[in-house]
């Protein structure tokens, strides 16, 4: 496995918020989606990676090399799209493009223009005068056209209209297709981004690292069964909920063995939707808190 980015034992405290400890490997050639509620620490995690926020403990590495504060090598290989730029930006899109292009040796002007045309971004306008959605599109084009090895995107599709969201995903797919080792790490609240782009899911819950999951393996384990006849009286492995004739589980394989052993049959078994699975993952902590 080739590592595009790695966090080792990363911890950060900001007032009463605690992030970590986080040990995470972002595999090269894959798309990893970072999900969690608002305030879970997703943006902070990305900023730690980009050296914009200093962690209290732990280390960050890009492409197998631990950052020691002096190496600048990674900066041309990693492009980051923040949720918002720090402070007001008194520049037009055209000026921002010139600045960005000058700083980035792999800048792809043709591709930038293609995105600007597709999204119909008025480059002559001041950045601050643009609507939130258009600002987002411009930030996206300015980031992706740097042509890095690793793209780190903080909620790239928020505030963006439906056709442009779809187009953003397609631009990212085109970009990924050009080289096997291209990698994306994105924080997102959009289920569609995760469905169409992600290979892995990383879930953060209130600063805590819940885990990294293979998207398809995760969803294959969460299933709802329509039981024929009576429901078993005993709890089914991984049971999440039961209703009239229906049982949901997070351990589909074990649950099926359990039901078969008892001669219980089902008329259909349907995997839970991805957003439902994520919601369940993020509810777990609350439930255990209630029980104790």
């Amino acid at each position: 496995m080739n590592s595009a980015a790695a966090l080792k034992g990363v911890k950060k405290e900001i007032d009463d918020f605690r992030l970590g400890p986080i040990d995470l490997e972002i595999e090269a050639g894959f798309v990893t989606a970072l999900v969690g509620r608002n305030g879970a620490g997703k943006s902070t995690l990305l900023k730690i990676l980009m050296n914009l926020v200093k962690q209290n403990e732990g280390s960050v590495a890009f492409f197998g090399q631990t950052l020691d504060g002096e190496s600048e090598d990674w900066k041309t290989k990693v492009a980051y799209m923040p949720q918002s730029y720090p402070g007001p930006l008194p520049f037009t899109g055209q000026e921002l493009k010139k600045l960005t292009a000058n700083w980035h040796p792999h800048w792809d002007e043709q591709w930038f223009q293609q995105m600007v045309e597709h999204f119909q971004i008025p480059l002559e306008k001041k950045f601050e005068k643009l609507s939130q959605g258009v600002q987002q599109k411009l930030k996206f084009a300015l980031t992706v056209a740097r042509n890095p090895q690793l793209l780190i995107l903080d909620e790239p599709t928020s505030h963006v209209d439906i056709p442009s969201k779809k187009q953003m995903i397609d631009f990212l797919i085109d970009w990924l297709e050009q080289e096997d080792s291209r990698t994306i790490l994105l924080a997102t609240h959009q289920v569609e981004d995760i469905r169409k782009l992600a290979d892995y899911l990383v879930i953060l819950d209130d600063g805590g690292f819940l885990g990294k999951y293979d998207k398809d393996e995760l969803t294959a384990q969460y299933k709802r069964y329509w039981i024929e006849g009576n429901l078993p009286t005993a709890t089914v492995p991984g049971e999440l909920e039961r209703g009239k004739g229906v049982i949901a589980t997070k351990c589909a394989r074990q649950a099926e063995d359990f039901l078969r052993k008892r001669g219980i049959t089902w008329s259909s078994a349907v995997p839970l939707e991805l957003d439902e699975v994520i919601s369940i993952k993020l509810m777990k902590k609350k439930n255990t808190a209630l029980k104790s």
Partner: peptide, 16 residues
């Protein structure tokens, strides 16, 4: 289609 673009269409991971 490439593995990446088929994965997008089918909404599955490239691993699958």
């Amino acid at each position: 289609p490439s593995i990446r673009s088929l994965s997008k269409e089918l909404e599955v991971s490239v691993i699958t």
